[in-house]
Simulated scan of single mutants.
Amino acid sequence: MEQRISFVTLAVRDLDATHRFYVDGLGWAPEMWVPGEVLMFRAGPLLVLSLWDEAAFTAEVGTAPARDGVPPLTLAHNVATRAEVDAVLATARAAGAEPVADATERAWGGYTGYFADPDGFRWEIAWNPGPIGELVLP
Rank of each mutant, 00 (worst) to 15 (best):
residue 1 M to N: 08
residue 4 R to F: 13
residue 7 F to Q: 04
residue 8 V to Q: 02
residue 15 L to Q: 03
residue 18 T to H: 09
residue 18 T to R: 05
residue 23 V to S: 05
residue 26 L to W: 06
residue 27 G to P: 07
residue 29 A to E: 06
residue 29 A to G: 07
residue 30 P to R: 06
residue 31 E to K: 11
residue 33 W to V: 08
residue 37 E to S: 11
residue 38 V to S: 01
residue 39 L to Y: 01
residue 42 R to C: 03
residue 46 L to E: 14
residue 54 E to S: 09
residue 56 A to V: 13
residue 60 E to A: 15
residue 64 A to H: 10
residue 65 P to I: 11
residue 69 G to R: 11
residue 70 V to Y: 15
residue 72 P to H: 10
residue 73 L to K: 15
residue 73 L to I: 14
residue 75 L to K: 03
residue 75 L to M: 14
residue 77 H to I: 12
residue 77 H to D: 12
residue 77 H to M: 08
residue 81 T to E: 00
residue 82 R to L: 00
residue 83 A to L: 05
residue 85 V to P: 00
residue 85 V to R: 00
residue 85 V to L: 02
residue 86 D to F: 09
residue 86 D to C: 09
residue 87 A to Q: 13
residue 92 A to K: 01
residue 94 A to M: 08
residue 98 E to R: 15
residue 103 A to V: 01
residue 104 T to Y: 07
residue 107 A to H: 07
residue 108 W to N: 13
residue 112 T to M: 02
residue 112 T to E: 03
residue 113 G to V: 07
residue 116 A to V: 09
residue 118 P to E: 08
residue 119 D to N: 14
residue 120 G to H: 03
residue 121 F to W: 04
residue 122 R to I: 15
residue 126 A to W: 00
residue 129 P to V: 02
residue 130 G to C: 08
residue 130 G to Q: 13
residue 131 P to H: 11
residue 132 I to K: 11
residue 133 G to T: 00
residue 133 G to M: 01
residue 135 L to G: 07
residue 135 L to Y: 03
residue 137 L to M: 06
